[in-house]
Write a protein that binds this DNA or RNA. Structure first.
Lengths: 135, 135
DNA sequence: CGCGGTAGTTGGGACTACCAACCATGCCGT
DNA sequence: ACGGCATGGTTGGTAGTCCCAACTACCGCG
């Protein structure tokens, strides 16, 4: 069965990627989840629950997560204009700046791997992964 | 720069894969890390420190990890014949059986995604990821 | 033999996630 | 318009993760 090989390759490479992200996060005192939160919020402003859905976490897990990032001035809570119960979360300028640094770091850290592909292969890989991810 | 697109696709798909693994783990009371330990030990018997190296964790993190799995009878500690300080870790038959179930579950869970690729694309993806992972 | 280095454990601390319980607000039917 | 149920978020408690520092046991070399 070829499905096995695909799953195996996917899982293996995913672990590799997570390892890189974990290291980059650790160097900046961010957990994997926080890193992901930042990645999500780069171009969005979301309510707590929406964020929890993105992450696949319980909403109660969000409070502390956001608290800690907020305390560091990287993230802020704001009122939601449409629903007084809801709380919007978004990156502060400092958070955005940090995220941009981390993106660059991520690119650099993965470069040894991604550089092994030529332009055509890169495009192919992106296409295949996008099919995998579905639209 | 096309490197951006590759990194983005890789990170996105890795998160997807991790989500699936997290769910499967949670359904069986296993953390992501434990799941990975099992995956590593399927065809190996390792010392604590070697395992820690595979996982990129501190050796002190291993004790508790192995403890908990051992308490559930999924994993066992054994003496290392060459070094009396060292402790070998390996899957018990129960652990191996569990892991086989989980592998099958993983394949099934990822099938909706992997099925979107035909045989040729699958082979291509595996090739590309293997290049990425290095030899 | 003795001494520095390595294998693993223990203890303490911050963080992560979950669940259940709890306010505040929103929404619906009557 | 109001009573009741649903929804958004927080809090508190628990178990697990992961780190660092300190410690014991053992290895190996001079």
């Amino acid at each position: 069965m070829t499905s096995d090989a695909v799953v195996e390759a996917l899982v293996r490479s995913s672990w590799r990627v997570m390892g890189v992200l974990t290291r980059i996060g650790a160097e900046n005192d961010l957990s994997l989840t926080q890193l992901r939160v930042f990645g999500i919020l780069v171009d969005r402003r979301l309510r707590m629950t929406e964020l929890a859905d993105y992450l696949g976490l319980d909403k109660s897990s969000m409070s502390g997560l956001v608290d800690r990032a907020e305390r560091r001035g990287l993230l802020a809570r704001g009122k939601n204009p449409d629903d007084r119960r809801a709380v919007d979360v978004y990156l502060t300028p400092a958070g955005l700046a940090l995220m941009e640094r981390l993106l660059e770091e991520g690119r650099r850290a993965l470069a040894p791997a991604t550089d092994r592909l030529d332009a055509k292969q890169s495009a192919q890989l992106v296409d295949l992964l996008e099919i995998l991810l579905g639209e």
